[in-house]
């Protein structure tokens, strides 16, 4: 184990949460190596390794091979091993704790000006040798990812709209229709009802068109400043439990020095679309989860 970080002592390992040590009296069945991400191998004296604050409760180490360094923690197979993991995945508190822990490590690396290629949740190996083997087997994929990501981070932008506000705005714009109040006219009450329904439908379609356009234009403006951009699935209102509807859920791979420009663009978009009833939310920096190939070809060794 390359101990460029403060080597985790046995005392620290003993501080691990109780469930790490044993489950219902079972004896821990061994140690696994949980890989958070991969860095370009750094010299042991590299100043960047000392600028980031390691999470107190997660001892993190480097395993190096092939010019790369895997950022790993030793974990107990009593928690992550075959059979046990499946059960833990049903425990939302466990999942949340572990997901946040995974994120904390990668964010600390980003904050330390290092560029991690993020691994998927619960990527585990049985030994340091198996981790090294992975670094060698997937060397070209990992190196090309690092090249693309160097000096960059992912940022998320969500755009929301207050549908009622947009509708009011659209009604105001449709000046020609405002004189029609639905009660008068030569056609009598039946015709008025029919016309009112027709008008409602037209307004609905117009609201849809206006918000689609706003989302599309916003995404294009933001993507122009990014090295890469991707539109993610919208989160439905049932889950976000917000009154506003989500119009855009975008991820943007940004050079570090362009963040200020990106934020200014968001301010400009807010000026443009705010009066319409739209708002923006910026999240990040994220490890570049959305800008790495999701699946590597399976190594020949299995």
């Amino acid at each position: 184990m390359n101990d460029v970080f403060a080597a985790p002592s046995l005392e620290e390992a003993a501080l691990a949460p109780p469930e790490l040590r044993s489950q219902a009296g079972e004896v821990a069945t061994g140690i696994g190596y949980y890989v958070y991400g991969v860095l370009r191998a750094v010299e042991p004296g590299d100043a960047r390794l000392y600028t980031w604050e390691q999470p107190q409760d997660q001892a993190v180490e480097l395993v190096t091979a092939g010019g790369l360094a895997a950022v790993v923690s030793q974990v107990s197979l009593a928690e992550f091993g075959d059979g046990v993991l499946a059960g833990n995945l049903r425990d939302l508190d466990w999942v949340e704790g572990r997901v946040r822990g995974h994120h904390r490590v990668l964010i600390a690396l980003l904050a330390g000006d290092l560029t991690p290629v993020p691994m998927r949740f619960c990527t585990l190996f049985q030994s340091e040798d198996r981790v090294r083997q992975m670094l060698v087997d997937h060397n070209s994929l990992l190196c090309s990812a690092l090249e693309r990501l160097e000096g960059r981070a992912e940022w998320g932008v969500k755009m929301f709209c207050d549908s009622t506000a947009v509708r009011r705005r659209v009604e105001q714009r449709a000046e020609g229709t405002r004189t029609f109040d639905g009660t008068t006219g030569a056609g009598g009450p039946g015709t008025a009802y029919f016309l009112r329904k027709k008008l409602e439908k037209m307004l609905d379609a117009e609201v849809e068109r206006v918000t689609d356009e706003a989302a599309q234009a916003s995404h294009e403006a933001l993507a122009r400043l990014a090295a890469d951009a991707v539109v993610l699935a919208l989160q439905d209102q049932e889950v976000t439990r917000r009154a506003e509807r989500m119009l855009l859920n975008g991820a943007y791979l940004l050079d570090r020095h362009r963040l200020l420009e990106f934020e200014r663009e968001l301010d400009r978009l807010t000026l443009d679309y705010g009066p319409l009833g739209c708002s923006f939310e910026l999240t990040g920096p994220w490890p570049a989860y959305n800008f790495v190939k999701a699946v590597a070809a399976e190594a020949s060794g299995g």
Partner: peptide
């Protein structure tokens, strides 16, 4: 919502290298 954002990334994205344990 923050947890949802995290899961959207950490659980479904990121490099899969087929470790000895993989989701």
């Amino acid at each position: 919502v923050a947890l949802l954002d995290l899961l959207d990334r950490i659980v479904t994205k990121g490099v899969v290298v087929y470790g000895d344990v993989t989701l």
